[in-house]
């Protein structure tokens, strides 16, 4: 990511949410992006997740110039390369855990049987093999977030992108989810977590602090891993 800018044109004034951010995230890094609200971290996350396009600068993902891709290709990247975990889980309420996890594979065009097999496998990995047929409202917050993690991982993305993954969870379940992240990291998964919670950031081995749309500090920590 080089010199990323994102400006919002809010009618009379132009809001510059990001004023030139340069970061490189290596494969198998566990990065926490930190900052208070309004620091631009959500904007940065949307850009990393290809939900949004920068107004300036260049973003390469696995060498591919994302900033030049069209809508269909962006959808493909979101589908194959990035796994999202949201603060509010964002599961489809009417579908079972299994179907929620299958969803990215549906858009990837994976066949029914293969889809089922991979989804079950991934749910097992997050420790939910006994809850596959349950709907989100029959699951606890921690379980829901684990379904979301499974959904994010099922396409074997290059990047797991989490936005305040523990924001809606109590401290015990937060610990569980972060432990899950660390385990994934150990098995080679690249992870980016956006958070304002230092406890969460402590699990990462690199912390990027944003202030007013620029990188203020970029520190490597030992993490707990």
């Amino acid at each position: 990511m080089a010199d990323i800018r994102r400006e919002y044109d809010m009618g009379s004034e132009v809001v510059r949410a990001l004023r030139g951010v340069d970061i490189t995230i290596e494969v198998n890094e566990f990065v926490a992006i930190m900052g208070s609200s309004g620091s631009g971290k959500s904007t940065l996350m949307n850009l990393i997740g290809c939900l949004d396009q920068p107004t300036g600068g260049e973003y390469r993902l696995n060498g591919e110039r994302v900033s030049e891709l069209d809508d269909v290709e962006l959808a493909r990247i979101r589908n194959r390369e990035i796994g999202f975990v949201f603060q509010t889980f964002n599961l489809l309420a009417r579908s079972t855990a299994l179907h929620n996890v299958e969803l990215p594979l549906v858009y990837a065009g994976v066949g029914r049987k293969e889809r089922r097999r991979r989804s079950e496998e991934t749910l097992e990995k997050v420790g939910l093999s006994d809850r596959m047929r349950h709907r989100p409202n029959e699951l606890s917050g921690g379980q829901r977030q684990r379904v979301a993690v499974a959904r994010a991982l099922v396409t074997k993305p290059s990047l797991l992108l989490a936005d305040e993954p523990t924001g809606n969870l109590d401290s015990t379940t937060s610990q569980e989810i972060m432990a899950l992240f660390e385990a994934l990291h150990r098995s080679g998964q690249t992870i980016v977590v956006v958070t304002h919670n230092p406890e969460v950031a402590d699990h990462a081995d690199r912390q990027i602090h944003l202030v007013d749309g620029s990188v203020e500090r970029d520190v490597r920590t030992e993490g707990s891993a």
Partner: peptide
């Protein structure tokens, strides 16, 4: 709307 957002984030195209 939210469901559409989720689906898009998971890789649904406009056409989907």
């Amino acid at each position: 709307t939210r469901e559409i957002g989720i689906r898009k984030a998971l890789g649904a195209t406009r056409t989907n």
